[in-house]
Design a protein around this nucleic acid. Structure first.
Lengths: 229, 229
DNA sequence: GCGTGTATTTCACTGATTGAAACGTCCTTT
DNA sequence: AAAGGACGTTTCAATCAGTGAAATACACGC
């Protein structure tokens, strides 16, 4: 019941994390960073290297390997992203009462809804998983194409779809935007101020999506549904 | 000199790879797949779970964890070739309408797609970042393994993937091939002459990839080589 | 020259890792 | 209902794989 976790593997994984965090790490630095003796760090890094999880450049410093990229991309491809995002969508709907979406870039300058949760208001935005959306003139598009904005979210009022206001924020681990979280609201019932509040909420959920469950939870007492209590 | 690699870590990494490959794997399947005893597999998967590299869903099956996505994105972000190649891929798609790829050699004698841009034709080649491809019998492989060719590009018609023609050119600063740029076309709509025309285009983009826009010189500060030897 | 920092190898020690076995549970089969 | 099988889990003694201090070799700066 305790935690029969293997020390060796844990150390190797910490080491891998250190290399990926730093982007480039010398053996001595890696050993220092992880509180390992140089010989141990070397041995572990060698097996990471042999399996493609790290690689050495010409100068001998360690860098993230292709296996990491490969597995990361695979993980994103499968429904992993969707299942990771589902709780966040759930919370967004709960907090705002509005329809919430997870989208990724597809091709031809379009995006696709990968997952959604319908809002609870009887008048709500409705769409479906698999629906493609243009990246031009939409909040999701602005986020996915990476034009970074001040507050970490984008609000587009009456853009491609008239009558609705879209609020989107990027899921961007390590600086690369891989997906967007968004909330779509009928414009008539939302003010600028409320849009910004929801924006902050979406941005926080998006940022927390790929963080540890512990540090990632966002306690929020505020009620943004506008529904009678 | 031999290979003082740690068995435990290797096993754990193989296990991680198996889970990511399958997308979803039960303990027994994982143990079978990796030739481990159930108890060992369980222990290793538990430490992978504790570090966020895998997670268990409601039914108890193992899935890729968010740490994998995190590190993958970070690793991609540190891959300078990707951002350098993206405009070139964009132009290739724009000029040819066909899916275009950037690939690099991986540790196990294969290649990996590091970046891609889907074509605009409705019938197009489709793949994904992180996909591995054999080096034998492919245009990308011929380029990456360095067999130097006359025109600076390689055309392989109906090779490993039947029905498609692949056209690849090397990115080789200082003579050393570090990556390949390629365009993949459904064979039925391309003639020899057109393939050569696209080949010249790909070769030009590949050659220009590491050059300063204005000076036409290769800055070469950073190390782009993935593999020792 | 000397000193400092690094990467690497060696090796004796030991405790972390291992896998068979046993157990409980949930199925399907008879 | 009973029997069979598959799976997840726990336990535990044996041992072997991982450990880290120390020695070696190399590169650099002063």
């Amino acid at each position: 019941m305790a935690e029969p976790s293997t020390r060796t593997v844990e150390r190797a994984l910490v080491l891998l994390g250190a290399v990926c965090d730093a982007g480039s790490l010398t053996l001595a630095d890696a050993a220092r960073e992880t509180d390992l003796s140089a010989s141990t760090a070397l041995r572990l890094l060698r097996t990471l290297e042999g399996t493609g999880f790290v690689r050495r450049d010409a100068l001998g410093t360690y860098r993230p390997g292709l296996r990491v990229v490969q597995l990361g991309a695979q993980a994103l491809g499968h429904e992993s992203l969707v299942s990771l995002a589902e709780p966040a969508l759930e919370r967004l709907v709960e907090r705002t009462g509005e329809s919430s979406y997870l989208s990724v870039p597809s091709h031809d300058g379009e995006g696709v809804y990968l997952a959604m949760r319908e809002g609870t208001h009887s008048v709500r935005h409705a769409s479906w998983v698999g629906r493609s959306i243009p990246l031009e003139g939409t909040a999701v598009g602005a986020v996915l194409t990476g034009g970074h904005q001040g507050d970490g979210f984008v609000v587009v009022r009456n853009g491609v779809e008239t009558d609705v206001t879209a609020i989107a924020a990027p899921v961007s681990p390590g600086g690369r935007v891989v997906a967007a979280l968004s909330v779509v609201v009928p414009s008539y019932r939302i003010t600028e101020a409320e849009a910004r509040r929801i924006g902050a909420l979406v941005a926080r959920e998006a940022a927390a999506l790929l963080m540890e469950p512990d540090t990632g939870t966002v306690p929020l007492t505020e009620d943004l549904t506008g529904e009678p209590v």
